[in-house]
Amino acid sequence: MKPPRFAYAAPESLEEALELLKEHGSEAKVLAGGQSLMPMLNLRLLKPAILVDINRLPGRDRIDEAEGMLRVGLLVRHRQAERSPLVRQSLPLLAEAVRQIGHPQIRNRGTLCGSVAHADPAAELPAVLAALGGQVVLRSAGGRRVLPADQFFLGFLTTALEPEEVVEELRLPVAPPRTGAAFLEFSRRAGDFALVGVAAQLAFDAAGRIAAAGLALTGVGGTPFKAASAEALLRGQAPSARLFAEAAERVREEVDPEADIHASAEYRRHLAQVLTRRALEAAWRRAGLEAA
């Protein structure tokens, strides 16, 4: 087993890479960490004429913070985000989610932007982007556009990314003070794609009420499920186990997962409810306001 024949380029600037994509369009595929693309090539599910390897682009592996947003560059690998003190401090939800992606060997190579571009329906990062209202920066030779998560993820492995574009950066709002977050997922074996995962972040006001709630699920549809009505239910309320159970019940009613060989639709709904309740309780606990 071996990838099909392709022509290979390893440009040393983003401009060069974008020129190649502009010239070859859907004939070309971008190779970043390769942890999703390489299996598809090895299994010959994909036969691109050209592979544009972006791993040698300089200076594209930066994580920084600007104007209240954490910005994750094109070549930031999961392992790097997992170990980043800035991520842990500014966005604990992302730090916890990244730790649950694949296995250490996968995280050493895989990139955050690549995972988002691939948009697996059971992946962690799309749910984080949806929960937080993050943005995806798309770049082509023609310019740059910034899409909110709900306009980027369109369906099963389908995004708004055009053939001549790359995901240049992810932008995620930094967690405000008095915030707690949790990313919980359930998989049959450690490191497998989750059956269902939940990204939850709760920000509290000075009185201890929920000022803002971000809640999204993975594994319950082709795109991340933004639990907007559960978020609305939580907003402005005093946190309690009962409130979280009610929000989880709302999520259970609204998700519409499909059955596959891994789990029935009913089991996925059950997981969505249980994990949502646990994630909200954990987020509350971690905000450290329970005693208040």
Partner: peptide, 23 residues
């Protein structure tokens, strides 16, 4: 040969990677 079993793990610049998922 598609990144699930880990049998092909080698170290590249000191980091464990799946050598079937790298050219």
């Amino acid at each position: 040969e598609h990144g699930v079993c880990g049998a092909c793990t080698v170290l590249v610049d000191g980091q464990a990677v799946r050598s079937c998922l790298m050219l």
